[in-house]
Nucleic acid binder design. Structure first.
Lengths: 115, 115
DNA sequence: GAGGAATTATCATTTTTGATATATATGCAA
DNA sequence: TTGCATATATATCAAAAATGATAATTCCTC
């Protein structure tokens, strides 16, 4: 795989194509760029979960979790499966997990912080 | 590498630790989540460039490019090297390129790789 | 060394976008 | 119907983008 890399003197339409790709990629990243959504994806990377289970694990309010899930759904980052009145969420794209692993490795090593 | 995955019944301080990591990771993602910054990183992934070269390649205004570079610098995503009055930028973290490659493969353009 | 041009960085402002909280609505099951 | 699980709407507040103006640094010439 090679990156969409603009170059000097490149034809306009080609540069535009790369710009379009970059926009799409940035939308994906924006959907990922939220601490709650990242935690949710880490949870789902292990096993599918219902909204209620995620609420319980994170200790967050229902609307908050549901809103973040909606955002992830919008970008196809999660899949859903209904079972009775519960809805199971799972990771929707294998690349997501690879990306998260790379991401967390990039972080500066765990310095203790105040909480 | 394993992801910081909250679990049911986990001790508060441990959950907090994961939350802190997720916050740091989301900051990194926010710095990446911009189409111009992505294009800049793709350009730099090939070879170091001066600000002026990046302006010329992207056909963008100086202030715009410089501000986006400042943002990337802030997160350590790029390095700088001065030579005369020009400043050369390069990718600051090898993980960045891996992440970008994974990211661009995830785009709808590459549907054949989903699953 | 003073003045000017080239290169890059920062500031100030306006406009957009995103986060969070609360309230309300929908869908399913007993 | 009632009650539970999930989704969406809305209001408020904070952060980020875009752009135009200005500042700092370096090099060159006199």
């Amino acid at each position: 795989m090679h990156l969409p890399t603009p170059r000097s003197g490149m034809a306009d339409h080609e540069l535009q194509g790369f710009s379009t790709k970059a926009r799409a990629a940035s939308e994906l990243l924006k959907a990922l760029a939220h601490h709650t959504r990242l935690l949710i994806l880490c949870i789902l990377a292990e096993e599918e979960k219902t909204v209620g289970q995620i609420e319980e694990i994170l200790g967050m309010q229902q609307a908050m979790v549901s809103q973040q899930l909606a955002r992830l759904r919008l970008e196809g980052l999660v899949n859903t499966r209904r079972e009775g009145r519960m809805i199971y969420y799972s990771v929707g794209h294998s690349g997501t997990v690879s990306l998260l692993k790379t991401l967390f490795v990039m972080l500066p090593d765990g310095i203790e912080q105040q909480g």
